[in-house]
């Protein structure tokens, strides 16, 4: 279940929860083949979910250092077993979607543990506009 992988429907445990969300277990699934979008769906309440994006697929310069405490909590030793997603907010409409680059969701894909990590990085915001190029500018996939 690496970021570019195809496995779907993996149950991820979030022992520390996520601020504003009442659940600790979610199903992570890919929404479409070759899409950067994923869906994180509460196992307890299927109508509650978050649209996620693989940030590296839309912003190649995205980078951060995972703090030691989070790495320890997530039992992360080998970088290859880490997947990173960011939440997408479409509440203001599809044309005004934003991405939360400040608090990415980091997942240890070996033990299926997840945590929303708050970065201490002034480069990133909770609401970074997601730019969707229309018409001829779009390189259709």
């Amino acid at each position: 279940m690496e970021n570019n992988g195809r496995q779907t429907g993996v149950v991820i445990s979030f022992p520390w929860g996520m601020p504003g969300l009442d659940y600790n277990e979610y199903i992570l699934s890919s929404l479409a083949t070759d899409s950067p979008f994923y869906f994180l769906q509460s196992t307890a309440c299927p109508e509650v979910g978050l649209l996620l994006i693989n940030p590296f697929s839309v912003y190649e310069d995205y980078e951060f250092d995972l703090d030691e405490e989070s790495a320890r909590q997530l039992e992360i030793g080998d970088q290859n077993h880490v997947a990173v997603f960011c939440t997408v907010n479409t509440s203001l409409g599809a044309d005004s979607a934003t991405v939360n680059l400040l608090a990415p969701i980091v997942i240890n894909s070996d033990c299926l543990l997840g945590k929303q990590v708050v970065l201490n990085d002034k480069r990133y915001s909770l609401r970074t506009p997601l730019v969707i190029c229309r018409g001829d500018q779009g390189e259709g996939r």
Binding site: Q41, P46, L50, L51, T90, L130, I132, R134, G138
Partner: peptide
Amino acid sequence: SITTPMEARGFLSKNTDKKIRI
């Protein structure tokens, strides 16, 4: 950001052929 699977698929269906970036 909380959304339903149906809303998420709706968003995706409008954007499948678009180039998306930040």
